[in-house]
């Protein structure tokens, strides 16, 4: 009762200056003005486009003739009656598997190699990072040449070990894996730098203590490096999964155009084809939403099942 009384006494006097102030204070005014340019851009190019995309996804539309409202027709066709969608989906998952796992393992190994104080190490790190900076278009053209069945360097190199010539991009069994290999090579610098940041945040004393206790290199990796690196490993896993599930357009477009057959059709390439080759804009918009949901589910599952295994103590 006493508290209620004191509250009643204190509250009005505490709010009095706020009531006296006009609603639009200088600070609020400044806040609105500072956010406005960015917010206009955001409202048009994110919010409006999202809504528009959802609307278009229910249309049958070639942009030239008036659209027809089809409800969920695009979605049901895509999910139930489109065999190429299934192929593209399978290929995208395969590409993701073939790039994310090797990319992470090699990236971690490379980070451990460059995590030394050797003189000039920053030059080597810069060299390993360079492929990341180069446009995929340029890289894809280079790799087409390296993969060339008759005069390519790769066949020559493998020939040194007695392997036969092979048409890497031209045969359905290896085309997708060849694109994946390029992608791994290209993104190794990212993963290396991420893991390097993670490795350098682990306190040196832990290793010294372990060494004094007689722990070998493998033991130190198992009981210090790996557990303390889990936040970074999780971050790299989630971002590269997302990147890979929505990626694979530039390289496919330049190296194989989805072929041979449909063996390198990825989601992004098939979506592009539906829109800009067959002029099925509504269908492609629905495709994008399916992709969005899939990526959302995969990301959610990763957070749901993996985030518990992350050790944040020293991260």
């Amino acid at each position: 009762m006493a508290t209620a009384a004191t509250e009643g006494v204190i509250a009005p006097s505490a709010t009095r200056p706020a009531r006296a102030r006009p609603w639009l204070t200088r600070e609020r005014m400044a806040g609105f003005l500072f956010v406005t340019p960015s917010l206009i851009q955001f409202l048009i190019f994110t919010v409006y486009l999202m809504v528009s995309s959802l609307v278009i996804s229910t249309w049958s539309w070639d942009l030239l003739t008036p659209h027809r409202q089809r409800g969920f027709y695009n979605y049901t066709t895509l999910l139930l009656h489109d065999p190429i969608f299934r192929t593209a989906f399978k290929n995208t998952l395969e590409l993701t598997l073939l790039t994310v796992a090797p990319g992470m393992i090699l990236g971690l190994l490379l980070a451990m190699v460059v995590n030394t104080r050797l003189r000039g190490i920053s030059i080597f790190r810069a060299a390993y990072f360079l492929p990341v900076v180069v446009p995929t278009v340029a890289t894809a053209i280079i790799f087409r040449w390296l993969y060339n069945p008759d005069f390519g360097v790769l066949n020559w190199f493998l020939g040194l070990f007695g392997l036969q010539h092979h048409d890497w991009l031209g045969s359905p069994s290896t085309a997708l894996a060849s694109i994946a290999a390029m992608s791994v090579w290209q993104s190794l610098g990212w993963n290396m730098t991420y893991f390097l940041v993670g490795l350098q945040s682990i306190p040196e004393q832990l290793y010294e203590a372990a060494r004094i206790d007689g722990a070998g290199a493998w033991m130190r990796f198992r009981s210090i490096t790996w557990p303390l690196l889990t936040p970074m490993t999780f971050f790299v896993l989630v971002t590269s999964m997302i990147g890979s599930l929505q990626g694979g357009f530039d390289s496919v477009y330049l190296m194989t155009q989805g072929g041979p057959g449909y063996s390198t059709y990825t989601n992004s390439f098939y979506l592009y084809s539906q829109a800009f080759r067959y002029f099925h804009y509504g269908y492609a918009a629905a495709y994008a939403w399916v992709l969005f949901v899939v990526i959302g589910i995969v990301t959610f599952l990763q957070f749901r099942f993996l985030s518990k295994r992350i050790n944040y103590d020293f991260g």
């Binding site: 917010l39 190019f45 409006y48 999202m50 528009s52 829109a275 492609a284 918009a285 994008a288 939403w289």
Partner: peptide, 23 residues
């Protein structure tokens, strides 16, 4: 507004491709 921005980080580019072209 800030949460809306954060949410936008998760949108794949494919979603805004078609309406972006139309716009």
């Amino acid at each position: 507004v800030f949460y809306a921005y954060l949410t936008a980080l998760m949108i794949p580019w494919e979603v805004t491709l078609i309406p972006g072209f139309v716009l």
